[in-house]
Design a protein around this nucleic acid. Structure first.
Lengths: 171, 171
DNA sequence: AAGTTTGTACAGAACAAACTGTATGAACAA
DNA sequence: TTGTTCATACAGTTTGTTCTGTACAAACTT
């Protein structure tokens, strides 16, 4: 078992690092794929990743597609190489955090907006007397939900520019 | 379809609010359960929730169990009522955020720690000459991963006390 | 005590997500 | 042009989650 200690270490690193990556709403598969790409600093082909992860090329292909969508991976061209090459983005913190925060802010805004629409529709119904029961509770709850959304949005907005983000520790 | 406009509004609110709740790593079912409990400010029984969500009592039971584990819901006793009563916690923002942040900080710390262990094991192997290839790249990557974890932990720690958290807007 | 009512454990069904192999299309070589 | 290599679309399979119904245990009533 100590025949290939480096490969072993590789696997441990990837497994553990993937756990952190997963927390940014990547599936286990995507997280693992990104991790292997990141640990291997140099660009890799689909076949190499397929080999390294023991998964089908199709699977890798769709996985890479997702990572590209998330802007966590770039295509790289190398003279004389026909296969596509992919590389993990540097600047992990910035990439992950900004995407993450943006997702929160956007979604929160969206949901809050929808709730506001529902609220005004409710007011309409009340005006027209189309509603019977005790509405006050619902109205209060709605207000609280809106406040909740505002607080979330604010928190994540404030997170956007931690002091370390403007400090490029680029390799 | 405008026969029961209030019920309709209820459903819309719950559906939309659940989307936000889901972002805090609750399953769609759990999120919906919490939402209905929150909108209905007063305590509810398993049967009432079952009825309201159109799901089996068993399902509600396990769902409530999860929400209790997350400290998002409390059991409530009411004189003369045999059934268990459950109620959503007030102070949404504090409850959700503190749990959320704590989860990030804890997990990040844990994963970082494991990576450090791997790192020292790697150093050992190098000392003993049990490793052949180019190790430097791996060591650099490991360091970068550790920095990454430190930045994440720091960001979420700073999030912990936004100004609004010490401002109890309790009903 | 026996009989009810309420909550949960468990096993299987229904559903959804991830993966694979085949087949198709695009880029290149000769 | 034909032949080859690569990436992806698609359908089918496997794997994992979520829900349901049954069965049991605990709490209560009389």
């Amino acid at each position: 078992m100590s025949e290939k200690p480096l490969e072993n270490i590789h696997n441990q690193i990837i497994t553990e690092f993937a756990k952190t990556v997963e927390m940014f709403d990547l599936s286990p598969g995507e997280a693992r794929l990104f991790s292997i790409l990141y640990l291997e600093g140099s660009p890799m082909t689909l076949d190499e990743m397929s080999e390294a992860l023991g998964k089908s090329k199709t699977s890798i292909s769709t996985g890479i597609r997702s990572l590209l969508d998330f802007n966590l991976v770039t295509r790289v061209w190398r003279k004389g190489v026909r296969k596509d090459l992919y590389m993990a983005e540097e600047n992990l913190y910035k990439k992950f955090m900004s995407t993450f925060i943006q997702k929160w802010v956007e979604s929160t805004k969206q949901h809050k907006h929808t709730l506001e629409e529902i609220e005004s529709r409710l007011e309409e119904n009340i005006k027209n007397g189309q509603v019977e029961g005790s509405i006050e509770e619902v109205k209060v709850r709605l207000k609280e939900m809106l406040v909740f959304h505002e607080l979330i949005e604010e928190s994540f907005r404030e997170m956007k520019c931690p002091k370390t983000l403007s400090n490029p520790t680029k390799t």
